[in-house]
Design a protein around this nucleic acid. Structure first.
Lengths: 142, 142
DNA sequence: TACCATTTTGTAATCTTTACAAATTTGTTT
DNA sequence: AAACAAATTTGTAAAGATTACAAAATGGTA
């Protein structure tokens, strides 16, 4: 029986990241919270459990994750950067009303078509939509 | 014979924007510079010609354009927001080496498929890729 | 001209992110 | 276990982008 934390540890090692306590905690948070959290949110949620945690560490760690391809950086929201621990192919929807980011399906062809071009070496594909989610539509009749 | 500025003026009015001198200048800049400029770039380039121009005005004006659907805000680059005066359906490529944003073709299906969903009211579709452009590939053999 | 509404401007404040050096932790060698 | 070097974490200060806000300028109208 392998614990969740052990799986996270293995995941980090597989991506060439030395698994420290903080790194494991942050990656575990990302994977158990598929809500595209910001640095602020991650810090606020982990802080009580890891009292010594520094916001700089959260920044550094997430940057490390992104550089090693262990997490994705989402820049949909111009206010703050959000992070995604789900590397599977999917698109995002950003609600202009409540600011929430939802996962939505993405057709594989979007990725494939682009890689046909030989003008660029593509490493990441991002597809997202903006608008209003159902809740916000009902509220304001957008 | 209609001047370029007159066309810009008409374009603004069509989008419900009162065409002031600054607004016309900024929209004209956007349309004649399809390079996805940042506020900084626009300000620096227009400043010599419009000595009284304030950076705040550039910020305000671009926000106004985006709200009225007269320009697009690009958040590909997490460092700064870029703006696009080209409303036609296209995708973007962001070079991680030089930071430049290139236009690339976008299949219409990307937009259509999403609007099928009735969970969200979609107002904008953004598709972009990250990686290295040819110049940067050659430089560093990425 | 006098008046009101809108737009622009400049400065200060806010917010996010990064730089950096000190402190801590980890791993290794003795 | 002690000593040491390397890597990681931390806290503070700085940088950079954006916004708030009030004063100044502009435009249109009675």
């Amino acid at each position: 029986m392998v614990s969740r934390k052990e799986n996270v540890e293995k995941y980090l090692v597989e991506h060439g990241i030395k698994p420290s306590f903080q790194r494991i905690s942050i990656m575990d948070y990302l994977r158990t919270h598929p809500t595209h959290p910001s640095v602020e949110t991650i810090y606020n949620d982990l802080s009580p459990r890891i009292p010594t945690l520094s916001k700089t560490t959260v920044y550094n760690t997430l940057k490390l994750f992104v550089e090693h391809g262990a997490a994705l950086m989402l820049t949909i929201d111009e206010k703050t950067t959000h992070f995604d621990g789900d590397l599977s192919s999917h698109a995002h929807f950003f609600c202009l009303g409540c600011g929430q980011i939802y996962d939505i399906e993405m057709d594989a062809s979007v990725r494939e078509r682009a890689s046909e071009s030989d003008l660029f070496t593509i490493t990441e594909t991002h597809l997202y939509y903006k608008g209003y989610c159902r809740k916000c539509c009902e509220k304001s009749d957008k």
